[in-house]
Simulated scan of single mutants.
Amino acid sequence: MSDTAASLQRKITSAEDLQSVVRTMKALAASSIGQYEQSVRALGDYYRTVQLGLSVCFRSSGSAELMPRERGSAVAGAIVFGSDQGLVGQFNEVVAGYAVKALTALPGGAEVWAVGERVHGRLADAGLPLAGLFPVPNSVKAITPLVGRILVESTARRGRGEVTELHLIYNRPTPDTAYTPVSQRLLPLDERWRRGLAERPWPTGNLPEVMGSATTALRALIREYLFVSLFRACAESLASENASRLAAMQRADKNIDDLLEDLHGTFHRLRQSGIDEELFDVISGFEALSGEA
Rank of each mutant, 00 (worst) to 15 (best):
D3I: 02
T4V: 07
A6R: 15
Q9K: 13
E16S: 14
Q19P: 03
S20W: 11
R23V: 07
T24F: 15
M25Q: 15
L28Q: 12
Q35P: 00
E37P: 00
E37D: 13
E37A: 10
D45S: 15
Y46P: 00
T49V: 08
Q51D: 13
F58T: 06
S60N: 10
S61R: 08
S63M: 05
S63R: 05
A64P: 00
A64M: 12
A64G: 06
E65D: 14
E65L: 09
L66W: 00
Q85V: 15
Q85W: 04
G86K: 04
Q90L: 10
Q90E: 07
V94S: 09
G97T: 05
G97Y: 03
G97N: 08
K101Q: 12
K101R: 11
K101Y: 02
T104P: 01
T104Y: 03
L106A: 05
V112P: 04
G116E: 06
E117D: 11
E117Y: 09
G132M: 09
V136F: 06
P137S: 13
A142T: 08
A142C: 04
T144E: 15
P145K: 07
L151C: 10
L151T: 08
V152R: 14
T155K: 14
A156N: 13
R158G: 09
G161R: 03
E165Y: 02
E165M: 08
E165K: 01
Y170R: 03
Y170M: 07
T180W: 07
P181C: 05
P181G: 07
V182L: 04
S183K: 12
R195D: 10
N206G: 06
N206Y: 10
N206E: 14
L207F: 03
P208W: 00
E209W: 04
M211H: 12
M211W: 02
S213W: 01
A217E: 08
L218E: 02
R219L: 03
L221Y: 00
I222K: 01
R223N: 13
F227N: 05
V228H: 02
R232C: 03
R232L: 05
C234T: 08
E236S: 05
A239W: 00
S240N: 01
E241I: 00
A243L: 10
A243M: 10
S244V: 02
D257T: 14
L260Q: 01
L260A: 05
R269M: 13
R269S: 13
L270K: 09
R271C: 14
S273C: 11
G274R: 15
G274M: 14
G274T: 13
D276H: 14
G285W: 05
F286Q: 12
F286V: 13
A288V: 04
L289M: 10
S290W: 14
S290L: 12
G291W: 12
